[in-house]
Amino acid sequence: MTPEEYVEAVLGVVERIPPGRVMSYGAIADYLAERSGRSSARLVGSIMARYGGGVPWYRVVNSVGRLPPGHEVRARARLAAEGTPLRGAGVDLAAAQWWPPD
């Protein structure tokens, strides 16, 4: 998978996350690892920071449910509007985590 294809794959996974659910950067990296040969949560985070504006970026959180840095207020409002289970300053991962069915 080329770097450009990996960017498209990451964005494609994010587009599939249903309302009210989330995935972590690491979960996205793990989901794509076998196909891509890459498994880096940091790379997924960089891709989201650079190219994620056109997808539901607020549905991607860190490994403990923390919201995207610098965008916490907007992300929290969007997640709350979708009925995403929230906890403290972030997301309740145990209740909201999603994995693609395929």
Score class of each variant (00 low, 15 high):
Ala95Asn: 06
Asp30Trp: 11
Ala95Ser: 13
Ala77Asp: 03
Val60Lys: 09
Leu86Cys: 04
Ala27Glu: 01
Val7Asp: 00
Leu93Asp: 03
Pro69Met: 12
Leu43Asn: 05
Gly88His: 08
Val13Leu: 07
Gly83Leu: 10
Gly52Trp: 09
Val64Cys: 13
Ala9Gln: 07
Asp102Lys: 12
Ala27Lys: 07
Gly88Phe: 10
Thr2Trp: 00
Gly83Glu: 00
Gly26Ser: 12
Met48Arg: 14
Ala75Arg: 02
Leu32Glu: 03
Val22Gly: 00
Gly70Thr: 08
Gly70Glu: 00
Arg42Ser: 13
Trp98Glu: 01
Glu5His: 10
Ser63Glu: 08
Pro101Gly: 06
Pro3Lys: 14
Ala41Thr: 06
Glu5Arg: 14
Leu86Gly: 02
Ala77Gly: 06
Gly90Lys: 11
Leu67His: 10
Pro19Leu: 06
Arg74Ala: 13
Ala33Thr: 00
Ala81Arg: 15
Asn62Val: 12
Val10Gln: 02
Arg87Gly: 05
Gly26Asp: 00
Arg59Thr: 09
Ala77Ser: 09
Pro56Tyr: 10
Arg76Cys: 04
Arg50Thr: 13
Pro69His: 14
Ser24His: 07
Arg16Leu: 06
Arg87Asp: 01
Tyr6Arg: 01
Gly54Cys: 12
Ser39Gly: 07
Arg50Leu: 14
Gly83Trp: 11
Asn62Thr: 10
Glu34Arg: 15
Arg21Asn: 07
Arg16His: 03
Gly70Asp: 01
Val55Met: 13
Thr84Arg: 07
Ala95Lys: 15
Gly53Val: 13
Thr84Phe: 04
Arg42Asn: 12
Ala89Trp: 10
Ser63Met: 12
Met23Ala: 05
Ser63Trp: 14
Asp102Phe: 14
Arg74Lys: 12
Val13Pro: 02
Val44Arg: 03
Glu8Ser: 11
Tyr25His: 09
Arg35Tyr: 03
Ser24Leu: 08
Val14Met: 07
Thr84Tyr: 06
Pro69Asp: 06
Gly88Asp: 04
Arg35Leu: 02
Pro3Ser: 11
Pro18His: 15
Ala49Gln: 14
Tyr51Ser: 10
Val22Asp: 01
Val73Pro: 05
Ala33Val: 03
Ala94Lys: 09
Ala81Tyr: 10
Pro100Asp: 02
Tyr51Cys: 08
Leu93Trp: 01
Tyr51Pro: 01
Pro85Val: 07
Trp99Tyr: 12
Gln97Arg: 13
Arg21Gly: 06
Pro18Met: 14
Arg87His: 09
Arg21Ala: 11
Arg76Lys: 11
Arg74Val: 08
Val91Lys: 00
Gly53Arg: 15
Val7Pro: 02
Asp30Phe: 08
Trp57Gly: 07
Gly90Asp: 00
Ser40Gly: 05
Arg42His: 13
Ser24Gln: 08
Thr84Asp: 04
Ala77Val: 11
Glu4Met: 09
Ala29Asn: 01
Ile28Thr: 09
Ala96Ser: 03
Val64Asn: 15
Glu82Met: 06
Pro85Cys: 05
Thr2Gln: 03
Val60Trp: 07
Ala80Pro: 02
Tyr58Ala: 05
Ser46Ala: 14
Glu72Val: 09
Ala49Cys: 13
Tyr25Gln: 00
Ala33Ile: 05
Pro19Tyr: 08
Thr84Val: 02
Gly20Lys: 09
Ala41Pro: 04
Gly37Gln: 09
Leu93Arg: 03
Arg76Tyr: 02
Ser36Met: 05
Asn62Lys: 13
Pro68Ile: 09
Thr2Leu: 01
Arg50Phe: 12
Ile47Asp: 01
Gly65Lys: 10
Ile17Tyr: 03
Val44Met: 02
